[in-house]
């Protein structure tokens, strides 16, 4: 009956067929554009009762779904209708799990610009996540960022930042950053530090790329501001704008011309003495927008 040769032949025929069928199925319109109907995703509080002690697992699964949901829409239409609801439910199911608060709060702030929801999520996290969690400090840290970057409420920002700086695990530069924030909230270094932290902790590659660009833009803005300051000193000293940035260096006002992060060059416009990057057309104006 079933001898080895026949078995091998059967495997040899069926397995490739299965593979190509799966490919075909994946291409069919029925599989693309999955319906995301979260209208019936009940509130977390209801689910917690209904999930029969499997609420953590359910929360984990929902969290994975949320990450995928975010990733998909980040690449396609950038519409995140259900994001905050999904985050809310998964944090209800998994109240002590730090990461969804942190990552979710950043998603809401940086991508969907639902700042109030982001703030609420961070605050919910600060209430629920045990303070002993290694990453707990990220919650006040990013909360402070929301207040500074989006709300322009520097006092609140500095307060949360200070709280983060008192928690274990915070980076060494944090206390210095707090000092700077108190002194001059409009300091681009503050924004860069925050964004670098966000960059490090973001797992979505596409979002990472965007944040990286943002950081570089702020660096360009910071450098241009620096060069403008030097240019003004030059003008005060010699009564005219320098022809090239090289002159600023030669006259000893700056000790190096900053490196343009996009790989371009900084130059001074001969007509009006304004300073630009060859790579960035429009200036940010303010570092924090």
């Amino acid at each position: 009956m079933l001898n080895n040769k026949k078995i091998l032949i059967m495997f040899g025929i069926i397995l490739p067929l299965l593979y190509s069928l799966q490919k075909q199925i994946d291409l069919s319109p029925e599989r693309r554009g999955r319906i995301e109907d979260m209208k019936y995703l009940p509130s977390g509080r209801f689910l917690k009762g209904a999930a029969l002690a499997y609420d953590e697992i359910l929360g984990d699964l929902l969290w994975i779904k949320t990450v995928i949901y975010f990733g998909e829409h980040y690449l396609s239409n950038k519409q995140y209708e259900w994001l905050s609801h999904m985050l809310d439910v998964s944090t209800d199911l998994n109240p002590y799990f730090e990461y969804p608060y942190e990552a979710g709060g950043v998603m809401l702030a940086m991508e969907t610009k639902e700042i109030d929801r982001s703030i609420a999520l961070f605050k919910k996290g600060m209430k629920n996540v045990p303070q002993t969690d290694k990453r707990y400090w990220y919650l006040p840290f990013f909360l402070g960022f929301d207040y500074m970057y989006f709300k322009k409420d520097f006092a609140a920002a500095a307060r949360y930042m200070e709280q983060a700086a008192r928690l274990p695990g915070h980076p060494e530069y944090l206390p210095m950053l707090v000092t700077r924030l108190y002194a001059n909230a409009n300091d681009p270094e503050v924004a860069i530090a925050f964004l670098k932290e966000i960059y490090e902790n973001t797992e979505n590659e596409d979002m990472k790329r965007d944040i990286d660009k943002r950081i570089k833009e702020i660096i360009v803005e910071r450098d241009i501001r620096l060069l403008e300051k030097a240019r003004n000193i030059f003008r005060d000293r010699y009564g005219q704008y320098p022809d090239t940035l090289q002159e600023l260096f030669k006259s000893g006002i700056i000790n190096m011309i900053p490196y343009e992060p996009f790989g371009g060059k900084y130059y001074i416009d001969q007509k009006d003495g304004s300073i630009h990057s060859t790579m960035v057309e429009e200036r940010l104006g303010v570092y924090i927008d």
């Binding site: 078995i7 059967m10 495997f11 069926i14 397995l15 067929l17 299965l18 069928l21 799966q22 075909q24 199925i25 069919s28 319109p29 029925e30």
Partner: peptide
């Protein structure tokens, strides 16, 4: 709408997979 073509694909997939498992 879900096309019969899709249904057919899915059913063939099922049958082949079952064949492998039974084998």
């Amino acid at each position: 709408p879900v096309s019969w073509g899709y249904i057919l694909y899915a059913m063939s997939y099922g049958i082949l997979y079952i064949a492998i498992i039974l084998l």
